[in-house]
Design a protein around this nucleic acid. Structure first.
Ligand SMILES: [Mn+2]
Ligand SMILES: [Mn+2]
Ligand SMILES: [Mn+2]
Ligand SMILES: [Mn+2]
Lengths: 216, 216
DNA sequence: TATTTTTTTTAGACTTGTCTAAATTAATTA
DNA sequence: TAATTAATTTAGACAAGTCTAAAAAAAATA
C-alpha cells in the first residue's frame, strides 16, 4: 500500500505531534535519521497524497487518513514488541529494532490475529498503550516521577526513554513497570529522589526520574 | 544486510536450481515477476558480490555464500508459514503472501526463537522441509502420485502446486497432508486415478495427481 | 551449412529516496 | 529597524531497481 519510508515518516510525525504539538522539517529529519532537504521532498509527496497538511516553512500536521495510517503502524509496532517479549521471551531492551521492521508487514488480518492470540493486550512492554483495531487507545494520564512531591505514591506505568541503556538500568535496579513506589525523600543537594516500594529503597537521579512515567 | 530484492532473486534461483537443475535469465524473470533485462542487471550485481556464478549467456549457479543466504530465506519463509497456520490459525492457502514479506525480517535470533517456540517443526504447512539453523534440511524422497502403480500405497507428504485454488481443492476433498492413500484404479479412458484411504474414495485427475507428492 | 527463431544483453530512460551545496525565508538579536 | 543567525527549500546529483526497444549471441530448423 504505502512504502516503508512513507510509513516511517508518518509515524515520526505522529510521535512528534504527540510529544511537542509540532512537527518541523528539522525535527522530522532528526527523528527519521535523514537530512532536512530529503524531508522537504518527502513532505511534498505526502501532501500530494493528502496524508499531511503542509505549507512551506510552516511545519506539518497529519490528515485523518495520515493519522489512521500512523496509528496502524504504532499498533503493529507495539503488538509485535509484546509478542517478542511475552511469547519469544526477549528482554524489553531487545525488541525495538525488530519491531521497527515487523511494523511494516502489511496484512491487517495478521495483526488482528496476533492481537487475539495474545489476548488483546492493552500496553506494550514499555507501558505504551496499544491502539485497538479501530485506532482507539487507552491514553493514561501519566506524569514524570520528577514532578512527584514528597510522600506521594504512584505506580510506574511507562518509560519516556526507550534506549537499551536506560531499560537495562531499570531492569537491574528492579524499577520495572507495575511497581508501586513512594517518594520518601528529595535530597537538598542535587534534588535526587529517594523512592521506596514495600521491599527496597531506590536512589535515582533527576535524569532517571524524568524518564519514569507514573500513574498517580 | 541484503535488500529484499537481492534476497528474492537468490531464493528464486535456489528454487529453480532445485527443480530443474538450471536457472536462466528468462526463468528467473518469470519467477521474480520482472523482465529479462532487469534480471541481467541484477545478475551482474549478485556476481559482483560473489553470491552467484555468472557468465554471459550461461545461466547461473549459487556460490556457497549465496546458497547460505537463500536457505536462510527459505527457513524463515517456512517457519513463518508454520507459525501462521499453527498458532494464528490461518488456512494453508492463506499464508504464502504474508510469509513472502516476513521472510525478509532480518534477525536470525528472532527466527531461532520462533523455531523453538513452535517446537522445531520439520515441515511447513505444505509439507516442505524446514532447514535448521545450520541450513540442513530433511529432504524426503517423494514422488508424484502420477507415477504410482495400481494398488500401491503411500502417504501424502507435500504438494507441488502452492496456488490457493489447488490448496482449497485439496482441503475441500480432504486430500490433506498425512493421509495414507492407495491407488485402487487407473481409468483406461483418461488415466485419471481413483485413490482410497480407509474411509473414502477419491477420483482425481492426472493434473491433480501430478501435484500430490507421495512418500511411498 | 545457412537461415530463422529464441534468448540474452546493452542502451537509454524513469521512479523513489537520498545527499551536498546554494538560495531563500523566517526568527533572533543588536 | 537592521543585521545576523537559524531553518527551510531548491537545484542538481547519485544509487537501486525497474522498464522498453534495439542489438548481439546462441539455439533450432530447414
Ligand atoms: Mn519500540
Ligand atoms: Mn514501545
Ligand atoms: Mn519475499
Ligand atoms: Mn510453503
Amino acid at each position: 500500500m504505502h512504502s516503508f519510508t512513507e510509513e516511517n515518516y508518518l509515524k515520526a510525525i505522529f510521535h512528534l505531534l504527540l510529544k511537542t504539538q509540532s512537527a518541523t522539517t528539522n525535527e522530522i529529519a532528526a527523528a527519521t535519521g535523514t537530512k532536512a532537504a530529503s524531508v522537504t521532498d518527502m513532505l511534498k509527496k505526502l501532501a500530494e497524497k493528502k496524508l499531511i497538511n503542509y505549507a512551506r516553512y510552516q511545519g506539518v500536521t497529519l490528515t485523518d487518513s495520515g493519522e489512521r495510517i500512523a496509528v496502524g503502524i504504532v499498533r503493529k509496532h507495539r503488538l509485535w514488541e509484546h509478542f517478542l517479549v511475552d511469547k519469544l521471551k526477549f528482554k524489553w531492551d531487545e525488541v525495538h529494532e525488530m519491531a521497527e521492521e515487523l511494523e511494516h508487514i502489511s496484512s491487517t488480518e495478521l495483526i488482528n490475529r496476533l492481537d487475539e492470540f495474545m489476548g488483546r493486550p492493552q500496553f506494550d512492554p514499555h507501558g505504551d498503550p496499544i491502539p485497538d483495531c479501530n485506532g482507539r487507545m487507552n491514553n493514561q494520564h501519566l506524569q514524570s516521577a520528577l514532578h512527584l512531591k514528597k510522600d506521594q505514591t504512584g505506580k510506574i506505568a511507562a518509560v519516556a526513554d526507550h534506549s537499551p541503556a536506560f531499560l537495562q538500568y531499570l531492569e537491574k535496579t528492579q524499577l520495572t513497570i507495575g511497581q508501586t513506589i513512594t517518594v520518601t525523600e528529595l535530597t537538598d543537594y542535587d534534588m535526587a529522589l529517594v523512592l521506596n516500594n514495600s521491599q527496597n529503597e531506590f536512589n535515582i537521579s533527576r535524569e532517571v526520574a524524568k524518564n519514569l512515567l507514573i500513574l498517580v
